[in-house]
Amino acid sequence: MTTSAFAPAHIVSVAASPTHGFSKQPVPSVHLLAGVGVQDDAHAGHTVKHRSRVAADPTQPNLRQVHLIHAELLDELNAAGFGLQPGDLGENVLTRGVDLLALPIGTRLHLGAEAVIKVTGLRNPCSQIENFRPGLLAAVLGRDEDGNLIRKAGIMGVVAVGGEIRQGDSVQIELPPLPHRALERV
């Protein structure tokens, strides 16, 4: 699929994995389950599924049901020589044409015909990303002009409305009411 600066926002790839691991396998489509996440994905559930969070408190609500990354990040990382493919960074949804990192908390992303994901925060990249490709952790972190940490490894969300999504589906953005709150790590 070709895109231009004027192409509408869309899904480039979807991925899932039934086991805990760093990368996820791209698939033709995924089914999102309201309040749960990606069907048959290791991180789906009402309560936390990420191992470190389960160890801390397994009763915490799962604010990381779906991981989204913007394809523009892969473009940037591949230009730097990382050789990444969809699913490599563990994302469930790879988008193009949406500045995911600039969205406020509570934004609703309408994916395809019926699914809706409510944005909860930023992915906090950990040492697994460095183990996957040396130098990658530094490449997905940065500093703004005030020295504040910038996390570029995508965003997390919960499924507000379930449905099937696939490559090529549209992405529509519904901003929350003002005042907007900037994304923080979840």
Score class of each variant (00 low, 15 high):
F22G: 10
L77S: 03
G106P: 05
A79D: 11
A42T: 02
D146V: 09
N92H: 01
L68P: 04
L175K: 08
P28I: 00
V171M: 07
L101I: 01
R181Y: 11
Q172F: 09
G81C: 00
V38N: 01
K49I: 00
A15N: 05
A80G: 06
V66H: 12
V38C: 02
H70Q: 09
D88P: 14
N124H: 15
A113E: 13
S17K: 01
I129S: 12
A138L: 14
V98F: 07
S13I: 06
P26S: 06
L175M: 05
V171L: 04
V48C: 13
V54R: 08
H46D: 13
R108Y: 04
L33S: 13
M156T: 06
H110D: 04
A139H: 03
S170K: 01
N124R: 13
H67D: 08
P58H: 06
V27K: 00
A182S: 12
S127W: 14
M1C: 09
Q172T: 08
I105P: 15
E130S: 04
E145K: 09
G81Y: 01
E174V: 04
E130D: 10
Q128N: 12
L183D: 12
A34H: 00
A71F: 12
A115Y: 05
P26A: 02
G97A: 07
S127T: 10
V119F: 08
V161W: 13
R96W: 10
